[in-house]
Simulated scan of single mutants.
Amino acid sequence: MRRHPDQVAEAPLPGFDVTRPVRLPRKPSKNVGVEAHRKAHRDRLRARFTEGGSDAVPDYELLEMILYRALPRGDTKPLAKALLKQFGDLNHVLAAPPARLKDVTGVGDRVVFELKLMEAVGHRMARARVMKKPILSSWDALLDYCQTAMAHRELEQFRVLFLDRKNVLIADEAQQTGTVDHVPVYPREVVKRALELNASALILVHNHPSGDPTPSQADMDMTNAIRDAAEVLGLVIHDHLIIGKARELSFRAEGYL
């Protein structure tokens, strides 16, 4: 297009390119500071744990570190404290059912996965101390394992430990899971499974979510029914353990068996 004779073009000032937009410097993002603070906090926690072990950090900080993998960019401290407030202690957090965990704001599938993974690792470590070993000479380790696996469950679970002729633990199986105060047990299925495994002796174990391991009449009747069925087939019932939150009860030690 032609410029009108009366129009005068204004020359640009030296050093300025009017064809390019001028970009002003951006202000630092607040997220940068937050991320730096979070990373520093995590680094301090890791260093304290590395140098001092588990005794150097309280439960909520252990739980924070467990949650790092599930929430790599999130602030895990408030969630760790919320979980402990909801369930009471670290053991109960790890043992809580997935549905109950998800009732806590901030808990999704990834958090549940990490918590259940840590629970499984703890069980496997305790179990390794008793599997394929003479149980009667490793009794304290057996009690520790039962406490780890069962003391913090919210529902009753019935397990059977199957032993060979040398009283070596050859299998540990959860037979049934029930309600908060009852678990169905079928003596015929227990002895049938013992025969399948070629076991010679059994130890029965179940938990009381109430925390009190005192046996009920139903516990007594169930134990006697299994003992009677086992004796017919030449199987020995060494004991029936009831696991409470702080202690366990042995039918054998209490004279019930």
Rank of each mutant, 00 (worst) to 15 (best):
R127Q: 15
A149L: 09
R159V: 09
L71S: 00
L90N: 01
E156G: 00
D144R: 08
F87M: 02
E119H: 14
P98W: 01
F87C: 02
P98Q: 04
Q176N: 12
V111W: 07
Q176C: 09
D144V: 01
D140A: 11
K132P: 04
K132Y: 12
D109M: 09
Q176S: 15
D172T: 11
Q175T: 11
A96F: 06
R159D: 13
T177V: 15
D164Q: 13
D75L: 05
E114C: 03
P134D: 06
E156H: 02
D172Y: 03
P97Q: 09
M118Q: 09
V93C: 06
D144H: 03
T76C: 15
Q147R: 14
F158Y: 11
L169C: 09
M150I: 02
A96C: 05
T148V: 09
K85V: 01
Y145K: 02
L94T: 03
D75T: 06
F113L: 13
G74E: 11
R159Y: 14
L83H: 03
L163R: 07
G178L: 11
G106N: 07
Y145M: 12
F158H: 06
A99E: 15
R159K: 01
D181G: 05
A96S: 10
D103V: 07
R127Y: 13
A128I: 05
L161F: 04
A120P: 01
L94V: 05
T76P: 12
D89E: 11
L155N: 12
P78F: 03
M150E: 06
L94W: 01
K132F: 14
Y145E: 06
E114L: 10
M125S: 01
K102Q: 14
G178Y: 08
R127L: 11
A120K: 15
V107F: 02
R159P: 00
Y145N: 04
